[in-house]
Nucleic acid binder design. Structure first.
Lengths: 210, 210
DNA sequence: AGAACCGTCAAACATATGTTTCAAGCAATT
DNA sequence: AATTGCTTGAAACATATGTTTGACGGTTCT
């Protein structure tokens, strides 16, 4: 079996596709863009992945892998405030910590999928969001009390997701509101502390309504 | 001057474009789609709007008009909690109240622009977001106190935007998390009450940090 | 060595799509 | 009535783009 050459171009295609899809979105990205970046022939995409759609599906498989279950092993014994903090910290660090840029690409693609859902979003939600949503719901049930109506639980759950996805979504707007901002320097730890404080305050306020 | 026929097709094009752009996004929408829906010839787009880009710009002009300044006439005398309530209510009703569907289209396009900003986003921010952002900043300054650091103010401001845009963004995810939900029945008044309560709780919690 | 297989490449293909052209129709003006 | 100007419509154009084809070169197996 010819190992190194074909695997290399196949992987190069995948990496290039991640970058181009994140940058331009599925529709605007062209296979010629991708192949150019990967230094591969135009036919390579169809040879290795069957089609442009196949390549996109492979990209999603790569960045949103299946079995990544949320570990709630001994976390259950911690106070819910601490669990919330860990929950927020875990996701916020994944989203906002600047590393290879590959992570930024992942969430750029995620955001695109939310704004213009394709059938692929089903898998992302199932593999990535569902387990996290369950953990969050457990935490909120503890914080709000067992008799909290489902509606309130759903609102709060949704609110906390929104607080975390916040910067991801509003970054382009903030850039345009105050163009001269050190926008790339988001202090993740600071952000996490703020979000947790804000969320706990909000949850308590909602709780006291009953 | 030929009044009714040409104005009609021009307007029909605009309405059809709003629908198709909201539904498919700028790239995926084709002028043939739009002209088909508007029962117009393919050349009509270029005749009346110069190009596909021109039509898109016209759509944005239509749904995000310029002079729509935020009225803060006598609101300044109200307590900041009430001002926040009105602020949230005003925007939430505009976003989530189900009427002709045209409003939903507006915010679908807005969401697309946030996820994949084009140069058009500059104008939207300038005409629509900026005045509202100023009002929100004033309210938050009152609620948090004058010595609040800019960073905290920025966080809270961003948080409240996020809480309101929340449903807009996470709807496709919520649909997939709990497919059997009366998702179309969002009680706006209930939602507004919850958001205001949650936000005020969060703001107070953040304020007490200092 | 010969056969079979696999990956790569240049070229071609088929189609989609934004745009242009030009003739015809229609209304207002002269 | 003739002219002018504006709008429409069918066709054509030029290009972009996803996909396919067939040949070439190298590796592996018999």
């Amino acid at each position: 079996m010819n190992e190194s050459p074909d695997v290399n171009t196949k992987k190069a295609l995948l990496l290039a596709a991640m970058e181009v899809f994140a940058d331009k979105g599925f529709d605007s990205a062209t296979v010629r863009d991708i192949c150019g970046l990967a230094k591969a022939n135009v036919a390579a995409v169809n040879y290795h992945y069957g089609s442009k759609d196949g390549l996109y599906a492979a990209v999603l498989e790569e960045i949103f892998p299946k079995g990544e279950e949320w570990i709630s092993g001994d976390e259950g014994s911690l106070p819910p405030e601490e669990r919330l903090h860990r929950f927020v910290k875990g996701l916020a660090e994944e989203i906002y910590t600047q590393s290879t840029g590959q992570i930024a690409q992942k969430w750029a693609i995620f955001l695109r999928e939310m704004a213009k859902p394709s059938h692929n979003l089903d898998l992302i939600v199932q593999h990535q969001v569902q387990p996290r949503a369950n953990e969050l719901r457990d935490i909120l049930t503890l914080l709000l009390g067992p008799k909290t109506p489902d509606q309130t639980l759903a609102y709060c759950s949704s609110n906390i997701w929104a607080l975390m996805l916040d910067h991801l979504l509003t970054q382009p707007i903030l850039d345009r509101l105050t163009p001269h901002r050190p926008n790339l320097g988001l202090d993740v730890e600071d952000f996490v502390d703020h979000v947790v404080r804000f969320a706990l305050g909000g949850i308590n306020a909602v709780k006291q309504r009953a």
